[in-house]
């Protein structure tokens, strides 16, 4: 029983709206897992992320973070366990320079000065932004802003990292690199990652995918299970990973493809077996 995040019957409606943004949402996440959250625009993903971080004052339902129930009284305690990247990095920046910004969370956590310096240096190096350390965050390109925001949580080394479309403005190779950094950090420190994304190819290595639709969890499970229901995903306005899409395109051309989900490499292996192997 070491669920680091536990949400039960969470319902939240913004005052001015008719329909709730979150509608009786319950799930739990074991410590150290990587969970991807997908769903159409407006399905409630960011609202859920904000709820976990105590940024939304929900009246119905409960949230437990690392065994502590989220209440008004202990919101700071809970927040110190979570490193959150907002959907728009401009909503994130507090420091006058890149360096100050990355250090900000650490100063709040009363980390000793020398260690702050070392962690900031290392985080900026890992996201390849060292040479920008004295710049103002608002003088950066879109992708550079996202890298700096990511450096902030890398330096913080929290128990839980929540990424709200944190790599949406990175080029594909940059995205792989940065996700690689987070994955390594996670393995080293046993961090739990909750990643909200529209990139299906980013969900393939998750332990679990949660699918939100109109504020409700409509499905959750291992990636291979979720991708097998490609028609449901497409109906919800979502997508399947590239290899699965290719498979569908081949089926339309009357080619018999393997049943189980496989990634690109698996698909190339299968093609080699069927077409080139003597």
């Amino acid at each position: 029983m070491n669920d680091i995040i536990k949400v039960s019957h969470l319902t939240y409606k913004y005052l001015q709206n008719e329909l709730p943004a979150l509608d009786d949402v319950s799930f739990s996440i074991p410590s150290g897992a990587w969970v991807a959250i997908v769903g159409h625009n407006g399905s409630g993903k960011s609202t859920l992320a904000h709820s976990l971080d105590g940024l939304i004052d929900f009246k119905q339902g409960q949230v437990f973070i690392d065994g502590v129930e989220l209440t008004e009284a202990n919101v700071w305690k809970v927040r110190s366990k979570i490193g959150m990247i907002f959907q728009n990095p401009d909503n994130q920046f507090v420091g006058a320079t890149v360096e100050d910004d990355v250090a900000f969370g650490l100063e709040n956590m009363a980390v000793p000065h020398d260690e702050i310096q070392a962690r900031v240096d290392s985080a900026l190096a890992q996201v390849q932004m060292s040479e920008f350390r004295h710049k103002q965050p608002d003088q950066l390109s879109g992708g550079q802003k996202q890298r700096v925001a990511l450096a902030g949580v890398i330096a913080m080394q929290p128990k839980i990292i929540i990424l709200d479309e944190a790599t949406s403005m990175l080029d594909p190779i940059g995205r792989q690199e940065i996700l690689g950094v987070i994955k390594r950090l996670r393995r080293k420190l046993g961090i739990t990652v909750l990643s909200i994304t529209h990139e299906m190819d980013e969900t393939t290595s998750a332990d679990e995918i949660i699918v939100l639709n109109d504020g409700k969890i409509i499905e959750s499970g291992k990636p291979s299970l979720i991708y097998a229901h490609s028609d449901l995903l497409l109906k919800l306005g979502l997508d399947v990973p590239y290899s699965q899409r290719l498979k569908e395109a081949l089926k339309l051309r009357h080619i018999q493809t393997p049943q189980a989900y496989s990634d690109e490499k698996g698909m190339v292996d299968w093609l080699w077996q069927s077409l080139l192997k003597a």
Partner: peptide
């Protein structure tokens, strides 16, 4: 258009 589909869901894109 500067990355106009960043943040859109797949069918929206």
């Amino acid at each position: 258009l500067d990355e106009p589909t960043a943040g859109l869901d797949p069918s929206g894109r």
